[in-house]
């Protein structure tokens, strides 16, 4: 019995070496690589990441280009006086579409006597650079926030000791003639996240058509549903 078992041992032990060689060969040639789901990088157009103000302002004192000549406002307006009727004939200012609440005439903001600047309600003439004082007349709360650095954007430095604190002015974002342009706060979003092995976004799209149990939100969604449809 003992000899039988030891010969069995022998036979089995002989197989170990070749079996390992087989395993080695399989690992070397057959062992496949690992699939890592890759996604070709689609670089975002850097122009869409511009930190420039959204509006280009026309300088102080402002200039306008007519027939290839840079002109100051007063170059013309010393000659052409603006009157109550001027809105009918806007001459060089065809593109201006004035939709700014109760301000329906140029002279409500511009100083008709000296068009290089603006006019406050108390008849003070101010330069274009101080436009925020003009805005502050009707928007004091926002202006207060802007002064404190709460409203609007600050480019450059947060620390005045180390560099320029470039606080963007009112009209570097808002169009003074038409502050509520549809395009003011509407943008095409940049691509959403696409992390490794993310799979299909789970709650995506469901947000606007959920099974809503909360009565408050249900009502809110009922009201907004048509708008959302239109939007998508």
């Amino acid at each position: 019995m003992q000899s039988a078992s030891s010969s069995k041992v022998g036979a089995a032990a002989w197989l170990v070496g070749p079996a390992f060689f087989g395993l080695a060969a399989w690992l070397w040639f057959g062992g496949g690589g690992v699939e890592i789901p890759r996604r070709p990088d689609v670089p975002v157009d850097l122009r869409r990441l511009s930190t420039a103000p959204r509006r280009v302002t026309i300088g102080d004192p402002p200039t306008i280009r007519i027939n290839n000549y840079e002109r100051h406002c007063n170059d013309c307006h010393q000659v052409f006086e603006i009157s109550e009727e001027q809105r009918a004939n806007r001459m060089q200012h065809q593109h201006v579409e004035l939709q700014h609440g109760i301000n329906v005439q140029c002279r409500h903001c511009h100083d008709a006597r000296d068009m290089n600047g603006l006019l406050l309600r108390d008849e003070t003439h101010i330069a274009f650079a101080e436009v925020d004082r003009l805005c502050a007349q009707c928007h004091p709360k926002v202006h207060e926030d802007w002064v404190l650095g709460i409203h609007g954007r600050i480019n450059g430095h947060w620390d005045p000791a180390q560099g320029e604190v470039r606080k963007l002015g009112c009209i570097e974002c808002h169009d003074p003639h038409r502050p509520r342009t549809p395009a003011m706060d509407r943008l095409a979003p940049l691509p959403g996240p696409h992390t490794l092995r993310m799979g299909e976004p789970a709650v995506h799209g469901e947000l606007h058509h959920p099974e809503e149990r909360d009565p408050l939100r249900r009502a809110a969604q009922g009201l907004g549903a048509s708008k959302a449809e239109e939007h998508r």
Partner: peptide
């Protein structure tokens, strides 16, 4: 929340 919104405009 929806992290993956892809509206034409926001």
């Amino acid at each position: 929340s929806d992290h993956h919104y892809d509206d034409r405009e926001v």
